[in-house]
Lab assay of single mutants.
Amino acid sequence: IDVRFTVNGLDVTVRVRTEEIAERVKELAKNGVDWREIQRIAEELNK
């Protein structure tokens, strides 16, 4: 599942395995978490 969001004007796409992880990623993006941090968290959750 590809999750797309915009952080500080940057369009970011993170690929995740499940809808649940996708929701977590969207939540982080909404809360203004840095995209590199979101990427790292997504990689952890995908394991």
Rank of each mutant, 00 (worst) to 15 (best):
I1C: 05
V16K: 00
V12H: 12
V7P: 01
E19L: 14
A22P: 00
E37P: 01
T6L: 09
D34F: 10
A29Q: 06
A22V: 04
V14C: 05
D2I: 14
E37W: 08
V33M: 11
T18L: 03
V12M: 10
V3K: 01
I1T: 05
G9P: 00
E19Q: 15
T18D: 08
N8M: 09
N31A: 15
L10S: 09
L10T: 13
K30I: 12
V33P: 01
A22F: 05
A29F: 15
A29M: 11
V7Y: 11
D34G: 10
D34C: 10
Q39R: 11
A22K: 05
N8G: 12
E20Q: 13
D11M: 15
T18W: 02
R17L: 15
G32C: 02
I38D: 00
V12Y: 15
V16G: 01
T6C: 08
A42K: 01
D11F: 13
N31T: 11
R4T: 14
A29E: 04
I41P: 00
W35A: 08
L28P: 00
I41A: 05
R17I: 12
V14D: 00
V33R: 06
V12S: 02
V12I: 14
Q39V: 15
E20Y: 13
I38T: 01
T6K: 12
V14R: 00
K30R: 14
E20R: 08
I38C: 02
K26D: 02
R15M: 10
E20G: 09
D11A: 13
G32M: 08
L45N: 02
R40G: 05
K47L: 14
A42V: 14
G9H: 04
V25F: 02
G9W: 02
L28D: 01
A22W: 04
V12K: 06
I38L: 08
V14N: 00
G9V: 01
F5N: 01
L45G: 03
L28W: 06
D2K: 10
A29W: 15
R40M: 10
K26V: 10
K26E: 05
K26N: 06
N31W: 10
N8P: 03
W35G: 05
L45C: 03
V25E: 00
V25A: 01
K30Q: 12
T6S: 11
V33L: 11
W35L: 15
V7T: 06
V12Q: 05
E43D: 14
D34L: 10
D2V: 14
Q39T: 11
V12L: 11
E23G: 08
V14E: 00
T18H: 03
I41W: 06
N46S: 05
I38K: 00
E19K: 14
L10R: 12
V25Y: 00
G9E: 05
T13W: 11
N8Q: 09
V25K: 00
R24S: 05
E37R: 07
I38N: 00
E19R: 13
E27S: 10
G32A: 07
T6R: 13
F5D: 01
L45F: 06
E23P: 00
V7I: 13
V14T: 03
A42F: 04
G32S: 06
V25L: 15
N46D: 06
A22E: 05
D34S: 14
G9I: 01
D34V: 07
I1P: 02
L10M: 14
K47P: 03
L28S: 02
V33Q: 05
N46L: 03
G9F: 03
D2G: 04
E20H: 08
E27R: 08
V12E: 03
T13C: 07
I21M: 05
R24Q: 11
F5Y: 04
V7S: 10
R15K: 09
T18K: 02
F5Q: 01
V16H: 00
E20L: 10
V16T: 04
K47V: 12
L10G: 05
D11G: 07
R40C: 08
V16N: 00
V7F: 12
E19P: 14
N8H: 08
K26T: 08
N31H: 10
G32Q: 07
I1A: 03
A29N: 06
N46K: 01
I41H: 04
V25C: 04
L28E: 03
A29S: 06
E20K: 11
A29P: 00
I21F: 05
R15P: 04
V14P: 00
W35K: 03
A42E: 01
E20M: 10
F5L: 15
V33S: 05
A29T: 04
F5K: 00
G32I: 06
V3I: 12
R36M: 13
I38S: 00
I41T: 05
R4P: 04
N46F: 04
E27I: 10
L45D: 03
V14A: 02
A22R: 05
T13M: 10
R36S: 12
V16Y: 01
N46R: 02
D11V: 15
N31C: 12
I21Y: 03
D34K: 09
D11H: 14
E43S: 09
K47D: 11
K47N: 14
V14K: 00
D34M: 09
